[in-house]
Design a protein around this nucleic acid. Sequence first.
DNA 1: AAGCCGTGGAA
DNA 2: TTTCCAAGGCT
Length: 306
Amino acid sequence: MTVTATNTSGSTAPLDPAVLHEAVVDWFGEHARDLPWRRPEAGAWGVMVSEFMLQQTPVARVLPVYEQWLKRWPSPAALAVDAPGEAVRAWGRLGYPRRALRLHAAAVAIQERHAGVVPRRHEHLLALPGIGEYTAAAVASFAYGQRHAVLDTNVRRVFARAVSGTEFPPGATTAAERRIARQLLPEGDAAAARWAAATMELGALVCKASAPVCVGCPIAAACAWRLAGSPAYDGPPRRGQTYAGTDRQVRGRLLAVLRASAEPVAQAVLDGAWQEPVQRARALDGLVADGLVEPLEGGLYRLPGA
DNA sequence: AAGCCGTGGAA
DNA sequence: TTTCCAAGGCT
């Protein structure tokens, strides 16, 4: 099947996948960042840890935490025998601490189901806690060199612009996007894995969400969005996140207190983290329900133990 | 399937 | 100052 891009006049011109592949992969060869999880010594576990941390958190903030994490827990087995609360503590301020809990749970599952080895099969990866469609494809591709359509926010944006001619992709991944990704995927395993990494990097460094650097783009001449005159986004409003005053902020405050304490913390201390008592109680209940906080006897709280 | 779940740097 | 947004997953 042929991949087409919409041009200015509304007609379509065929994109030659082989030409795109070469341009993007060559660009990647020159501009790829030297990230620790891309080095061979990272292994599948290193790749997996990085993917968890990079879910909605920028590379620059992940780097130091990633290094200390792998030094402390160089294998799933090492993490699995530690308390989940230690994972939450080491997660620091990366945000969305449920990811730390899920990474710990995934390590336990890898011990139980896969003899301590990060599974190779997409199906088995997908079954692990905290691993969805994207992360399963990413680990299978980056750690094991398999052929998978890796559709993260960067790749989706690159395809939206280069192929579909729109500034931004839809709110949720669509069947149409998966079809485009599958059609553009090179045949061989190694080529597909390289392509996945290259398109992600292109989205991260050049085809950025705001202020794309089209002068540095290897496929600018073939980009449907550019050829259409870079029309402004006209789809449904992309969801903006308010944060100040939300339960999420309160949860963050409470968890910060617990992270900072090696000992269980009294209710009264947690009360100092947020003024408004109803919201504070709701947030704490939520953290307990999520397994991020463990209530003890006598009004004490701590990060979850083993 | 729309909403929830943290955090901080940059524009 | 406010807004945007960063390699998503789960319910």
